[in-house]
Design a protein around this nucleic acid. Structure first.
Length: 597
DNA sequence: GTGAACCGGGG
DNA sequence: GTGTACGGTTCAC
């Protein structure tokens, strides 16, 4: 047996002989070689909450479901006996779920909608972007019939569970790409309009524009045909082997366009580590461009999570982040610049290069936070880069639920979702409209992480809600305005997790202060920022209708206490000679009207 | 007023 | 792929 350590980048599964085999994609941190590790020892499963246990078991066995185990799990504060049904293939899960749904003694089905690779990461407790220790041995490409993979990719069969070292390396090799397209007829049509330029830029000093036209610019490499350009593009990606491939709106423009042109020109785009072509994963109405084994990040989506702007054009985003103007060519005139064959063509080359360079700069600035979030939440960077903070929280909670042997609540059905949405909207934070006038001696007072603090202080959690019966008054907290009650003991699921996040953040901040290596200092900073975002958004789980842990009462209690806290603080400030003039949710401005020295 | 339709980024 | 966004604005009646 051999040991191999990889920086885990990506994960999926393949099907061989009707069985799912998990593939872990990573790079050897010392040699930068690409590694694919196969694990064929993990099976999909789901849980059934029975009405009558024995009856239920009998009914399931009748359907030839024989891999059944009993497990005691905590369901929102209550210990319950569940039947765990283990299956052979992930795609059987939704099928069997639908089959058993109407059985007389099946009360509820749980954890039937967790993608297999995510289930693997959670259950094996391994984290993308960490260094993972693998025990197993090298295999030939024939073993798993993954025969199209390049010879320089190392294939490894796991004989034991992978082990997370909980360490990482501060390496973030980013390669950006961007295309320019011929567009005499308005928005280009990939069936007919060729790609005229492909630009690439690496944050380690790599700059290139591929084109079928010649240029004086050093960064331009001229190729014979559009088809050659696509092939050269693949070659460069392979040769540069970045940790992250970034684009701007590349999920919805560049990658679909490149794929379509490759189809039209009959070029095989072997971009994946396994030499697979670009694939698209449906995410709502949009697609996410998958380059298997590499991490493709669309910065457009990321930026929309990261900052609030009116418009999110590459130009506006770059100017906002770097306070610098960007080279611009009006989109609808690109074909004219291309056809001009004069100085304007050179301008177009500059523009194409600049788009890639600025994309790299933006990626360099914001992906470290996304990497930190990926490690916190324990899900792949590709997924995290396409999640809202709310979704990150949900996956983080699902990880923690597994660790604490809590069963995960189901997502609401559409009916439940609509009911939740239509039910009277919860009141928000307290707002005092600003008083008119000019004021002197202004002070601003605010609560640090008001909502997270309230959740912890009042132990607000779906598993601590009580009607107070059988408890004495000092055993629960009572919310002002609405009388919701929360048991003081034991600590609720969500409060305890927020507590851990805040403690961890303090620990990281301390490490950050003591750290002397600038790179590591920055890495700690991103980590504590990620933790802060997680804690501050956690209150949303109670208010967002699609969340598994949605609980209207909890959401209402938090804001009610919030309103009380801030108004108390305002009153208190008046005792010290302040007069509040404007307040919003967790802070207020006050003017000092007491005696000055 | 209400619900449907549209929009984002990209060239 | 153990799947089907989202939130805001404008339009049509």
């Amino acid at each position: 047996m051999q040991t191999k350590t990889i920086l885990l980048n990506d994960i999926d599964y393949i099907t061989r002989n009707d069985k799912a085999i998990v593939r872990l994609f990573g790079t050897d941190p010392e040699t930068s070689e690409n590694v694919i590790a196969y694990d064929s020892n993990f099976l999909p499963y789901m849980y059934v909450l029975p009405l009558d246990l024995d009856e239920c078991l009998a009914q399931l066995r009748e359907l030839n479901l024989d891999n059944l185990e009993l497990e005691s799990k905590n369901d929102i504060g209550v210990e319950k006996e569940f039947i765990r049904i283990t299956l052979n293939h992930p795609q059987e899960v939704p099928k069997i779920r639908d089959t058993i749904r109407d059985l007389d003694d099946v009360r509820e089905i749980r954890e039937y909608d967790i993608p297999f690779y995510r289930r693997y990461l959670i259950d094996k407790q391994i984290t993308p972007r960490n260094l993972i220790k693998l025990n197993g041995h090298l295999v030939d490409r024939e073993v798993y019939d993954d025969i199209n993979i390049d010879k320089d990719v190392i294939l490894f069969k796991l004989d034991e569970d992978p082990v997370d070292t909980h360490k990482t390396i501060n390496r973030n090799r980013i390669l950006s790409f961007d295309i320019e397209v011929y567009n005499a007829e308005g928005m280009p049509d990939a069936e007919v309009d060729p790609i005229i330029m492909m630009s690439l830029s690496g944050n380690y000093g790599y700059n290139k524009v591929l084109s079928t036209k010649k240029s004086e610019r050093e960064f331009v490499e001229t190729v014979e045909s559009e088809r050659d350009m696509l092939q050269r593009f693949v070659e460069i990606v392979k040769q540069e082997n970045p940790d992250i491939l970034v684009g701007y709106n590349s999920d919805n423009f560049d990658l679909p366009y490149i794929k379509k042109r490759a189809d039209v020109l009959k070029v095989k785009l072997k971009l994946g580590i396994d030499n697979s072509t670009i694939k698209f994963m449906k995410r709502g109405f949009n697609n996410a461009g998958v380059i298997r084994g590499r991490t493709h990040v669309d910065l457009y989506l990321l930026i929309r999570q990261y900052m609030r702007l009116e418009r999110y054009t590459l130009e506006k985003v770059y100017e906002e982040l770097f306070n610098e103007e960007k080279i611009d060519v009006p989109g609808d005139k690109i074909y004219q610049y291309w056809d001009s064959d004069d100085e304007r063509l050179e301008e177009l080359f500059d523009y194409s290069m600049d788009d890639a360079v600025t994309t790299t700069m933006i990626g360099d600035k914001i992906t470290p936070l996304t990497i930190a979030q990926s490690r916190l939440v324990g899900q792949p960077l590709f997924d995290i880069a396409r999640m809202t903070t709310g979704q990150m929280i949900e996956w983080y909670l699902m990880l923690k639920a597994y660790e604490k042997n809590n069963i995960v609540p189901n997502k609401p059905t559409n009916t439940e979702y609509n009911e939740r949405r239509l039910s009277k909207k919860n009141e928000g934070g307290y707002v005092k409209e600003p008083e008119k006038g000019l004021f002197e001696h202004i002070a601003y007072l605010d609560f640090k992480s008001l909502y997270p603090s309230i959740i912890i202080a009042q132990n607000i959690s779906p598993d601590t809600i009580t009607d107070g019966e059988g408890l004495s008054e000092d055993e629960y907290y009572t919310c002002p305005e609405n009388d919701y009650k929360f048991r003081k003991e034991p600590k609720g699921f969500i409060p305890s997790i927020i507590g851990n996040i805040l403690d961890e953040r303090q620990r990281i901040k301390k490490l950050m202060k003591e750290e002397t290596v600038p790179e590591q200092k920055k890495a700690y900073d991103f980590e504590q920022q990620g933790l802060k975002r997680l804690a501050n958004s956690m209150y949303g789980v109670y208010g967002y209708s699609r969340f598994r842990w949605y609980k209207k009462e909890c959401g209402a209690a938090i804001t009610a206490w919030g309103r009380e806290y801030i108004q108390d603080a305002m009153k208190k400030s008046e005792e010290y000679g302040f007069k509040p003039i404007y307040a919003d949710t967790d802070g207020f401005y006050a003017t000092y009207i007491g005696k000055l020295e």
